[in-house]
């Protein structure tokens, strides 16, 4: 295992492989299949801890599929298969002793459409901790307050905690979902186009939130909005399916500031400057 890993590390392009200490998720030679269809191929990259990494690329380039590999959400789709290695803090998340439910606590996810449960704001946030055995009211109160504060929602909802989560505005609902994820203290936050369905002011709040959270949570965001990727992320990965029916792959991975000023690959340059896609 170690030999294989060190071999693949040495073969990978230098800019996709980071220093050991800063790596949260290490991906090596990942291929992903929907039945016979090879959707992603040969993905090798290191996702840095305490950073925001953005996945960009045209529709159908596999960026959301790749994102879902990190908490094994794809397992829920019949006929899907992962080949290769995904290490979270050095542990193979596709290993036989990994409990996907526990993994999804460590690797939380936010979706395009806010999806609060049809229950009160308080219960939405307390749901996860209760599931994990927290019963004491004062402990739950603390968790709910801290999580809502971390999600920058506390001030807006502190007096209406018993109101239904679905009564909030779209942007508030999305922050409620973030608070719900934070309540179980995840290491990683996966965000799949979290701002596509909300108003610009709420987008701004969520972007600010990402900057605050990244010191404690590793964030990976899939976005179609390239200005957003440029604004919020430290690193950017560009995915591309060059031929319809062929697998998509990782074209370029690097510091966001470099990708958006001097990308190394012409395909990245053509995509981000709007020459295709």
């Amino acid at each position: 295992m170690t030999d294989t890993l060190s071999q693949s590390t040495s073969q990978a392009a230098p800019d996709v492989v980071a220093e050991e200490a800063t790596v949260k998720i290490r991906v090596r030679d990942l291929d992903f299949y929907y039945d016979d269809f090879n959707a992603l191929t040969g993905i090798t990259c290191d996702i840095k801890a305490q950073a925001v990494t953005a996945f960009i690329g045209p529709s159908g380039c596999g960026k959301s599929t790749f994102l879902r590999c990190f908490n094994r959400m794809n397992d829920l789709i019949p006929g899907t298969r992962v080949v290769g290695t995904v290490l979270l803090d050095g542990q193979d998340i596709y290993g036989p002793d990994v409990d996907p439910v526990d993994l999804r606590r460590r690797v939380g996810m936010i979706f395009q459409q806010p999806n609060p449960f049809p229950m009160s704001i308080y219960d939405n946030v307390a749901y996860g901790p209760r599931l994990h055995g927290v019963k004491k009211k004062s402990d739950l109160d603390d968790i709910v307050k801290t999580s809502l504060k971390r999600a920058n929602l506390w001030k807006e909802v502190k007096d209406i905690l018993d109101r239904g989560g679905l009564t909030l505005s779209g942007g508030q609902q999305q922050r409620l979902c973030i608070a719900r994820v934070l309540a179980v203290q995840p290491d990683v936050l996966l965000m799949d186009e979290p701002c596509s369905a909300i108003d610009p002011t709420s987008v701004q709040k969520i972007e600010d939130l990402m900057a605050e959270l990244k010191s404690t949570v590793t964030i990976i965001i899939v976005t179609h909005n390239m200005q957003q990727a440029a604004r919020v992320s430290d690193d950017t990965a560009f995915f591309l399916q060059e031929v319809m029916g062929e697998p998509a792959h990782l074209v370029e991975f690097g510091r966001t500031a470099e990708i958006f000023t001097s990308p190394k690959d012409k395909r990245t340059e053509d995509y981000i400057t709007g020459r295709f896609g």
């Binding site: 440029a230 958006f260 000023t261 001097s262 990308p263 990245t268 340059e269 981000i272 400057t273």
Partner: peptide
């Protein structure tokens, strides 16, 4: 226009 890459340069 938010130019990037070669356009920005």
């Amino acid at each position: 226009q938010f130019p990037v890459a070669r356009d920005l340069r």
